[in-house]
Amino acid sequence: MRLSTKSATLLVLALLIVATPFFFPSAYYYRVGALVFVNGIAVTGLVILTGYAGQISLGHAGFAGIGAYASALGPTHLSLPPSLSVLLGAALSALIAFLVGRPILRLKGYYLAVATLGFGILVSMVLANESGITGGPDGVQVAELGLRDLLASLGLKLKAPVFWYAFSGVVLLVGAWLALNLYDSPTGRALRALHGSEVAAKTVGVDVPRVTLQAFVISAVYASVAGSLLALQNRFVTPDIAGYMYSIELVTMAVFGGAGSVFGAIFGAGILTLLPQALTFLAEYEQLMLGLIMVLVMIFMREGLVPSALRLIRGRGA
């Protein structure tokens, strides 16, 4: 029996999430795993925007920032429970993406890149400057999600890293499932047509501004949810989360693994999250190695790690 890409991706992801903890020597590995999943969620959003629709964004950390601060400020300023605050953040991100997306997506290539970059910087600046509300550049504390306590009261006591590993893993699976479904939907087909050639897509009747805007809004929601999860598990958030460095990191993860496929991008998120942890023994040489690995992979596996590796395997098989 041949598995579809969709089922294969979900199956492999689920297996990895469930099976790897058997090899974890300590709770720290759960923490790193949870970070991989959180980045994976944000990067899955970029697959929809960049991989499917062919649009670049250097400002998606802005949406992560909105999601993070929503989950931080919702409970303190609006007396909302953290779970509802996450949803509020996602809704707010979608609304803002909808409003700024229309003019921004008219731009192409590097001009789109600088416009999204500017948007992200504006968000981080507001977060840093409105210190009366946001706590300023030094950041703000975030309330407990409460789910872990609930589980504990039901007799399931989990360490924080273990809980967040499981929770982010489930969210990632749901996110990947939705993204893969989108791929096969009419919108997904329209997006792919668009990625191939915008002119061709137009001639076959694709409403280009509408579908790119949809992709932008959806990817913003992914980033927002990822930001919320990060803030909730760190119990503290600073405006750095909306900074352009994180935006660039996200794009790099997607492209590094292969922005065209959900699995590739998540794999890229995994590698680039693990590398700095694995390279700590190099101490001062860490940055040097990180840069070198990025350059080498992009030279020798230019479509990204996963697509290039798959091609290699298939090429050999044929």
Binding site: T50, I56, G109, I248, V251, T252, V255, F256, A259, E284, Y285, E286, Q287, L288, M289, L290, G291, L292, I293, M294, V295, M298, I299, R302, E303, G304
Partner: peptide, 30 residues
Amino acid sequence: AIEPARGAPVVSLIIITIGASIFIRGAAQL
């Protein structure tokens, strides 16, 4: 870094220059 990657998509070339910038910063601090 750039010539060996000739023909790669522009976004891959951007990642190469980002990687190079991290590399140069890392070297400069050493």
